[in-house]
Design a protein around this nucleic acid. Structure first.
Length: 322
RNA sequence: GGCCACGUGGCGAAUUGGGAACGCAGGGGUCUGCAAAACCUCGAUGAGCCGGUUCGAUCCCGGCCGUGGCCU
């Protein structure tokens, strides 16, 4: 029988964190954050990281994974362990593949302790990689090849890709350089068409996905409020500190909230305008998230505040699931 | 009260006597190693209103309304 995993999805500011904690408390679970930005140490306010404490006492809980990622303590929020937070420094590179590995080990670890793993997060692609067991190729980005490819034009890249992987060329978004580049990169590096490597393995877990649905207007208001709160809690100082230490050019600093405030910190924009932009960009991000999750028909949608017992209970109590 | 200017989609902004660029915001969408990213796509049957000139007006003329400025 596959391990049971609960996943909580939804757009930013929909209340995923709170629901995750609620379920974890009630069903003895542990949370794994599925968030491509909360992995960065020091990026706290702007990524809406839950507030919690690092507990020394639970070092042994982590196992090898903690060694691997340098985390020696357990992050607890209201007593509920949260994993996947503060995995790397802001200047580190970390991708879906890294996360998938991390999550799989973490889930195994939690299950071993007879707790319920609860994946909470808005990074749809990362979640998909885990629950659908995507066969991410064993072909990480090659810095040298990538630099070479990046210097070429999109049309040029597509042309070569089409030669090597005609089938894939039909399907790919030929106007998206980032995608074409990666497809070509993998194809060249492996000698096999990229399109033939986009497969998925058998699902490793039995997953219950719960989606938080919030009306757009309500969500927008929540976003505005939350951004204001971030500023009140010291977002500007946080960004300034990171800027001084890492500069504003690194990937993690392109995160919403950080890139705009960087503009202010560097004197390129007024604070008020930067804050407005954070709100707008967050709304657009939320929209993209909804587009992503909308089409997954396995998700059980609930309204914020609505009890999820009716879906969680039967799921966890059911004995045999394929 | 008089004079001048302006009045184009939610906002900003081009354009032209032959039937309205673009940017932003907004909606919809794509998604197998940067995913809070990258990319795609859709929005004025109509240019303040009413007349007139013209084969034809958003663009020319007149009136009205509105906005801004100047003047007494």
């Amino acid at each position: 029988m596959k391990p049971k995993v609960i996943a909580i999805v939804g757009p930013t500011a929909s209340g995923k964190t709170g629901l995750g904690i609620e379920i974890a408390k009630k069903w003895d679970g542990e949370v794994i954050s599925v968030d491509s930005r909360q992995i960065y140490r020091g990026m706290d306010i702007g990524t809406a990281k839950p507030e919690g404490e690092w507990s020394e006492a639970d070092i042994e809980k982590g196992g090898s994974i903690n060694q691997l990622f340098g985390a020696r303590k357990t992050f607890e929020v209201e007593g509920v362990p949260h994993w996947g937070i503060d995995l790397v420094d802001p200047d580190a590179s970390y991708s879906v593949a890294d996360f998938k590995l991390f999550a799989e080990e973490k889930i195994a670890d939690i299950v071993k302790r007879r707790k319920v793993p609860i994946l909470v997060g808005g990074t749809g692609f990362w979640l998909k990689a885990v629950i659908d067991n995507l066969d991410l190729t064993q072909t990480p980005a090659d810095p040298i090849l990538r630099a070479e490819l990046e210097a070429r034009t999109l049309g040029d890249l597509f042309h070569e890709y089409k030669q090597l992987d005609p089938g894939g060329a039909e399907l790919i978004d030929k106007q998206n350089k980032r995608r074409v580049l990666r497809a070509l990169e993998v194809t060249k590096l492996t000698g096999k068409p990229f399109s033939e490597q986009q497969t998925m393995g058998e699902a490793l877990y039995s997953v219950l996905q719960i989606g938080l649905r919030v009306p757009r207007e309500v969500l927008n208001e929540r976003i505005d409020t939350r951004v204001e709160e971030m500023v009140a809690r010291g977002l500007v100082q946080e960004v300034r500190g990171l800027c001084e230490r890492y500069g504003c050019e690194i990937e993690s600093m392109t995160s919403i909230g950080y890139r705009q405030i960087c503009q202010f910190v560097s004197g390129a924009q007024k604070l008020k305008e930067a804050i407005e932009e954070v709100k707008i960009d967050t709304r657009q991000y939320a929209k993209r998230q909804m587009t992503w999750f909308k089409r997954d028909e396995r998700i059980h949608w609930v309204e914020p505040g609505q009890s999820v017992d009716a879906v969680v209970q039967p799921f966890l109590l059911k004995n045999s699931i394929t």
